[in-house]
Amino acid sequence: MIEKVTKTVDTLNQAAGLKRAENRAKWVSYLFCFPAVSLMFIILLVPIFVAGVLSFTDYSLGNPDLNWLGSKNYEVIFGRSSYQKMIWATVTYVVVVVPISIGLGLGAAMLINSVGRIGELYKTIYFLPVMAALLAMALVWDLALHPTVGIVNQTLRLGCGTWIEGLFSFGWLPWVDGAQSWYSTSCADEFPLWIGDRDYAMPTICFIGIWQAFGFNMVLYLAGLTGVPRELYHAAAIDGVTNTWDQFRLVTWPMLGPTTIFVVTITSINSFKVFDTVEALTWGGPAKSTYVMMYAIFEKAVKENLVGFGSAITIVFLFFVLLITFTQRFLVEKRVHYS
């Protein structure tokens, strides 16, 4: 009897204790959220506001005068040819790198998935560039692509006049004139300067971007592929879908939809942020052909102290990035809800 009473009292005490704990928790929760919320305001939200305000001025650090310019900064960005080139370069980079790195990522994932256990080895290799500091690898590429010393041009030169030239000039294809091909004309003349040539600089920067990014996309697609149920292929086979391309088009690709939305978003945002390769290799040149937005912000605002103008580029940049993320949210919202 006594035992029973003690037990009941205990339970009651426990319940009361829990109630007290919960009341206490109300206060504690504000305490717990306070650092995070205040940092979110100071580090993430206030700067957007600051950039927004400064973008309408000619503010520069250390200069007490601040003139209100209205929309002049934005007019310059969209009106002057060097900044149109900037937007053009950024968009080109994104439009080239995103589809190719995603295509290669998906292709690599599908191939790796179909070769069995040895695929793990390829996966490891393809993921290496994701781990390595991009700046370091950019400097290596810079040296490898050096017009005279670089390993790339030296190797290409070795192939001149041998069967390799014959193979890569594609003269063996009946409709191609081998002597006019890229490889043969380069052999006869000079191999490109790569980052020093305005026609090759952007493709080269894009190539390094793709080289670095596709392993990341591959891993996301590999994860996506494990989520495609085997039964779907059997079901499709019963419906007469047996050819590989149809399997891909009708089963794999639709099932990878959510992965693709995510991969496109993250690769686009990362591509918009391209900076390391440009800053280390081309300084936006030659002839502004690689003058991307992040580099422009750095050059104008940090190096030349044109903070107001740099802020305007920042706002345009944020607009692009938010546009992409909101599009993604809109597409995803239809399927997923956080609870």
Binding site: I43, L44, V46, P47, I48, V50, A51, L54, I269, K273, F275, M294, I297, A301, V302, V307, G310, S311, T314, F317, L318, V321, L322, T325, F326, R329
Partner: peptide, 10 residues
């Protein structure tokens, strides 16, 4: 949604 790199200048 906000990448910190984008607001580096402010």
């Amino acid at each position: 949604l906000i990448p910190v790199h984008a607001i580096a200048l402010p």
